Amino acid sequence: MLLHNRVNGKELKQKLQQSQEPRTTLSFYRYVRIDDPAALRDELYAQWMQWRVWGRVYVAQEGINAQVSVPTEHFEAYRDAIYQHPYLGQLRLNVAVEDDGKSFFKLAIKVRPKIVADGLNDTTFDVTNKGQHLSAEAFNRIAEDPNTIIVDMRNHYEAEVGHFEGAIRLDADSFRDALPMAERELEGQQEKNVVMYCTGGIRCEKASAYFKHKGYKNVFQLEGGIIKYAHEVQEKGLPNKFRGKNFVFDERLGERVGHEVISHCHQCGAPCDTHTNCDNTACNLLFIQCEACAAQYEGCCSDTCQEVTHLPEEEQQKIRQQQPAKTRFSKGRLTARPTVGDQ
């Protein structure tokens, strides 16, 4: 069986947008010793393709990290297979808060050195000695304690559109960058309650173990991250301390958790929390753009990028080949208006 997609990505996206098939988006992870990640990748790909499961999955010797979309008619069979699997049986499935069924259009399962790039040497500390898990109710309670510090372990562009009240937000482009930033913010506060949160829990799982290793006495993590918190406050009628939108790493780019719009369009400054990628694929900048600017700039981050999209495809391809990858996958900031398209 082929272990990769052979259909053009644009064609797959178009097919997904036209499909009326109900699908369920979910994410999960587990830190567990996997002796042969490549063999597990092959096994999962062969099985999941039979159910038309799409998504992005990383497998490493330290575990698995997955965000997938499953046809709703196959969800129970898929869930049962996960729970019966020797490596995956004890993990938690986080079902999306808002789901239009258009989150993923293909399946990619990749073997990586780590399931989340963190820059840490895991041999120097016990990654299983993690922080205490908090339910939504417990999180709300400890958040009211003046001895508590809440740290958002996500990237700056995630926290920009949504975050918990009073949380320290790190100006990080990646989790690798976030860890040393958090360490500087928390320096000298080893006796405080340190509460960490992220999207689904995977980054906090590692970060909480790292900070316990660093001597912090009372380390906690929000169980299941923002996704599980959103479900719990709705199901139990709890106060919602999350403001704005939860950024997600799929085609949706966000799901509504709080009612407020707390961020602004990077081009005109109007209230907006809609992320998009610049339509000039040689740029591909991730930034926030309102409907008016999307119409004015035709989905681009700048006049220059807009001009590029009007060029013949052959010329656009040459520009893409010349553009360094590090600028093609940049993340925009409101304080420094997007300029990648002008380089």
Rank of each mutant, 00 (worst) to 15 (best):
I227E: 13
I227N: 07
I227A: 13
K228F: 10
H231G: 06
E232A: 14
V233M: 04
Q234C: 01
E235K: 15
E235S: 09
L238C: 07
L238P: 09
P239T: 00
P239L: 00
N240Y: 04
K241R: 15
K241E: 12
K241Q: 13
K241D: 11
F242P: 04
R243E: 12
R243G: 04
G244P: 08
K245I: 11
K245Q: 15
F247A: 04
F247H: 10
V248T: 15
V248W: 10
E251K: 08
E255Q: 15
E255W: 08
R256Y: 03
R256N: 12
V257D: 12
G258C: 11
G258R: 12
H259E: 15
H259K: 14
H259V: 11
E260F: 05
E260A: 12
V261L: 01
V261N: 09
V261M: 03
I262C: 00
S263I: 01
S263W: 07
C265Y: 01
C265R: 02
C265T: 03
H266I: 01
Q267R: 14
G269R: 08
G269E: 03
A270V: 12
P271G: 05
C272N: 15
C272T: 05
C272H: 02
T274P: 00
H275Q: 07
H275S: 10
T276M: 13
T276V: 14
N277E: 09
N277V: 03
N277H: 15
N277A: 06
C278Q: 01
D279V: 00
D279W: 02
N280F: 04
N280Y: 04
T281D: 12
T281A: 08
A282R: 08
A282S: 15
A282N: 13
N284M: 08
N284Y: 07
N284G: 14
L286T: 13
L286S: 13
L286E: 04
F287V: 00
F287E: 00
Q289I: 14
C290T: 03
E291V: 12
E291Q: 14
E291I: 11
C293A: 03
C293W: 05
C293L: 01
A294Y: 06
A295E: 12
A295Q: 13
Y297G: 00
Y297Q: 03
Y297C: 00
E298F: 02
E298N: 06
G299D: 02
C301A: 05
C301F: 03
